[in-house]
Simulated assay, not measured.
Amino acid sequence: MLDDVDVEAAASAGAWGSFLHQGQVCMSAGRHLVHESIADAYIESLVRRARALSVGDPFKGNFHLGPIINERQAANVDRIVEEPAGKGAKVLAGGTRDGLFFKPTVMVDVAPGMPAFEEEIFGPVAAVTVFKNDYDAVTLAKWVTSRDDLPAYPF
């Protein structure tokens, strides 16, 4: 997102893109590249939206998010969230699960070299990377699309 964006609208779209269907769709927004001038406001809005979403068994109540497809994928989402924490990323919302039910997660300070930046997550995780200028944004976007050593689907 560039610095002239409507931050609330962008955060709404970002939340929808990362959390719809528990993030388990191929059109899911895993990476959120955000200009530094709006990063704090965007992250605050995204965190607020993530915390407002309920997670649970849709057969037992009216929840916003249901389960991850299986234990193997839930464990993979755990790994993708936990590994970057040891490399400087921070979880500001969610980051935990109860069985197959993973809380909507917002991570910040996500950078190339971290699974949350490099891999398709297939879970309700919004990985935020802040950039300084258009060149940095394009470099980050090209970094992922130009690599041929990234893993395919994790399941």
Rank of each mutant, 00 (worst) to 15 (best):
Y42F: 15
I121E: 06
L92G: 11
G95F: 11
K60I: 05
Y153E: 05
M107R: 07
L46I: 05
A127C: 04
P154V: 13
S12C: 04
A15H: 06
V138H: 02
A9K: 14
A152Y: 11
G14W: 12
A85S: 11
Y42R: 02
H64N: 15
D148F: 15
S54D: 07
E118S: 01
F19T: 07
L46K: 02
T96V: 07
G113K: 01
P104N: 13
A13F: 15
M114Y: 00
K87R: 15
D3Q: 12
L100S: 11
E83H: 01
D148L: 15
F101V: 02
W16Y: 13
F117P: 06
L20G: 01
G99F: 08
Y135E: 14
T129M: 08
V77T: 03
D148G: 15
T145C: 03
P124E: 10
V108M: 07
E82G: 05
E120S: 02
K60R: 14
A39P: 05
E71A: 13
L33I: 10
I121W: 01
H32I: 08
E83Q: 10
A52V: 03
M114R: 02
D78T: 12
F63K: 02
S37A: 12
A10C: 03
F155M: 07
G94W: 01
A52Y: 02
P112W: 04
E36R: 15
L140F: 12
E8Q: 12
E83C: 04
A126S: 11
D4G: 10
A137Q: 14
L92F: 08
I38P: 06
L100Y: 09
G14V: 11
W143R: 11
A41Y: 03
G94S: 04
I69K: 01
P124N: 12
L20R: 13
R72A: 12
L92K: 15
D148E: 14
V7R: 06
Y42M: 04
H21I: 09
A13G: 15
V25S: 10
D4R: 14
A9W: 00
Y153I: 11
D40A: 10
M114L: 10
P58A: 14
A127F: 00
T145N: 12
G14M: 14
N62R: 14
A11G: 04
Q24G: 00
S45N: 02
N62Y: 08
K90Y: 02
G17N: 11
A85P: 02
T105N: 13
A13Y: 05
K90E: 15
V25D: 06
E36N: 05
A41G: 05
L140A: 13
P154M: 09
E44K: 13
R72W: 00
A15Q: 11
A93S: 13
V106W: 04
R31F: 00
V7E: 03
A41I: 04
A10F: 00
S45I: 01
D40K: 06
F131Q: 00
A39T: 10
E71M: 03
K142R: 13
R97E: 01
V55K: 03
G17C: 03
D78C: 09
L46T: 09
S18M: 00
S28Y: 03
W16D: 12
A74M: 04
I80D: 03
Q22T: 14
G17M: 07
P154Q: 09
G94C: 05
